[in-house]
Design a protein around this nucleic acid. Structure first.
Length: 280
DNA sequence: CGATTCCCCTGATAGC
DNA sequence: TGCTATCAGGGGAATC
């Protein structure tokens, strides 16, 4: 499940190969992945354009093209982008293949078919893809004071659901939300405005820390995630709580609990992350 | 207005 | 052995 660190790793790996290459063909085998424009036009407009740059916004990848257009790809749950040789076997669930001028292919594989692609002029792409609605970019534009003020204004929301809300912070998913809350020692079901300023500061720092660590370790290959060359990440070996139900807390040894909170499974240590603020 | 639920989809797993 | 039910979760729409 690609979150910010995984998407950033894909960006970095593809950035080594794609810039300067021209798209010589596009084969769309599953039309529903292409949300805009119609798949035929999508393919037609892409052919002949070359890659200038690859950017990222939250969990979205933005391929800046030579024709003043941007190709936006969201991997959602199980999407994978691989820079491959045509001689490599085409994996099952490969839905879109871009042929490249160096003889390679950029292949989009997605078991669950939830991924999305958009192609539009640079000035329209944010609106068409929905990216204009995204919140703070946590590694470059995430002011603590504004974050604290937002949490103060949320009397009913659980902190976990706010961390997952892309309109507030862009790029956090279930794995890094649980890990950040563990590092900050905050229970996922705490109401946002009940956090003390010390807790808000801890959480802010934990979010940045865990996302940076995830990028440094090339992402978390918990289920399907691989980078732009098909390589797994390493951060799954450092997870403290996610996917560790029943295992000992790395901090105190208590059994990690898994519980559905705000509609998502949440993993936490009941001792290190008490349901109310722990005052020392 | 904001929070919750449903839904898209396939594969892994549990239960019978 | 094989069937069905359940769960996983990003994010948008529908619903409460």
């Amino acid at each position: 499940m690609p979150e910010l660190p995984e998407v950033e790793t894909v960006r970095q790996t593809l950035l080594e190969y794609l810039p300067g290459l021209t798209i010589t063909g596009v084969n769309v085998h599953l039309a529903r992945i292409v949300k805009y424009p119609e798949p035929e036009q999508f393919a037609k407009e892409l052919v002949g354009q070359s890659f200038r740059d690859i950017k990222r916004r939250g969990k979205y990848l933005k391929f800046v093209l030579s024709g003043e257009q941007t190709l936006v790809i969201h991997l959602r749950m199980t999407g994978q982008l691989r820079y491959s040789l045509p001689t490599e076997p085409v994996l099952r669930h490969t839905h879109i293949i871009f042929s490249l001028s160096d003889g390679h292919e950029l292949r989009y594989t997605d078991i669950r078919q939830f991924g999305t692609m958009y192609l539009a002029d640079n000035r329209q792409i944010d609106e068409i893809s929905g990216m204009y609605r995204l919140g703070w970019e946590p590694l470059t534009d995430f002011p603590l004071a504004d974050f604290a003020a937002l949490l103060k204004g949320r009397k009913r929301a659980k902190i976990k659901s706010l961390l997952l809300d892309q309109h507030i912070i862009a790029g956090i998913g279930n794995i890094y939300a649980d890990e950040a809350l563990f590092i900050a020692k905050i229970h996922p079901a705490r109401l946002a405005n009940s956090l003390s300023s010390a807790e808000v500061a801890r959480l802010h720092r934990a979010i940045v820390q865990v996302l940076r660590a995830g990028v440094k370790m090339h992402g978390t290959s918990f289920s399907d995630y691989v980078d732009g060359l098909g390589r797994q990440g390493e951060f799954q070996h450092q997870l403290a709580v996610y996917g560790r139900e029943g295992a000992p807390c790395p901090c105190c040894g208590s059994e990690i609990v898994r519980q559905k909170i705000a509609g998502r499974s949440s993993h936490f240590c009941p001792l290190c992350q008490p349901a109310s603020e722990h005052v020392n």
